[in-house]
């Protein structure tokens, strides 16, 4: 059977793309953040608001919360962490695969907020490393989005160790 000659043409100029490998991996990673919401207190309300339609974190590729630490790469610690909970948070962090990032969402996760007492952990950075702190009690959604974008910039500018001599 005779088929007509192939007429479809690639548009000029888009056949290939030059980039640096680190930039390419960073670009891919910054738009595929899978958050693990570790949500404990009133900041949860603002977390819901920022995830829902009006503010829509889906735009940043950070929409789909994974409730298994093994499938997520962004730990969002939202709310007050008590000393009694601290071992759980630490374990969740340890179960996440590299590369992973941590956001301390709100005053409580950042510093304990106004809970300076026997019960509250005064900042999650006392037990796990934190990449980004979002201020506010609770933070406004715009602040959260600003935070996520800052984290994206940082991921894009990072060195990505999967980029080796052979890749």
């Amino acid at each position: 059977m005779n088929r007509p000659a192939e007429t479809r043409r690639a548009p000029p100029g888009l056949e290939f793309l030059t980039t640096k490998k680190d930039e390419f991996v960073g670009w891919a990673r910054k738009f595929s953040l899978f958050p693990y919401p570790f949500v404990t207190a009133c900041c949860a309300m603002e977390f819901m608001s920022v995830s829902s339609t009006l503010y829509d974190t889906d735009r940043f590729g950070a929409a789909l919360p994974r409730f298994s630490p093994r499938q997520s790469d962004l730990l969002m610690v939202v709310g007050t962490i008590t000393h009694k909970q601290a071992p759980v948070l630490r374990r969740v962090y340890e179960q996440m695969c590299e590369p992973k990032w941590v956001i301390a969402f709100g005053a409580c996760a950042t510093s304990g907020g106004f809970y300076q007492n026997y019960a509250a952990l005064a900042g999650i950075d006392k037990i796990i490393p934190v990449d980004l702190y979002i201020p506010g009690c609770p933070p406004r959604p715009e602040t959260v989005i600003d935070g996520i974008m800052k984290l994206q910039d940082r991921i894009a500018a990072d060195r990505h160790p999967i980029v080796t001599e052979t890749f």
Binding site: Q116, Y118, I127
Partner: peptide, 28 residues
């Protein structure tokens, strides 16, 4: 019940220092 095993003292007594912490996870 609300505290954890190993917690020393009773936090709502007036003589419990208000900034005394008893962390379960060693600090970095």
């Amino acid at each position: 019940l609300l505290l954890y095993e190993g917690f020393v003292g009773h936090p709502l007594r007036k003589d419990y220092p208000k900034d005394r912490e008893q962390p379960l996870v060693p600090y970095r």
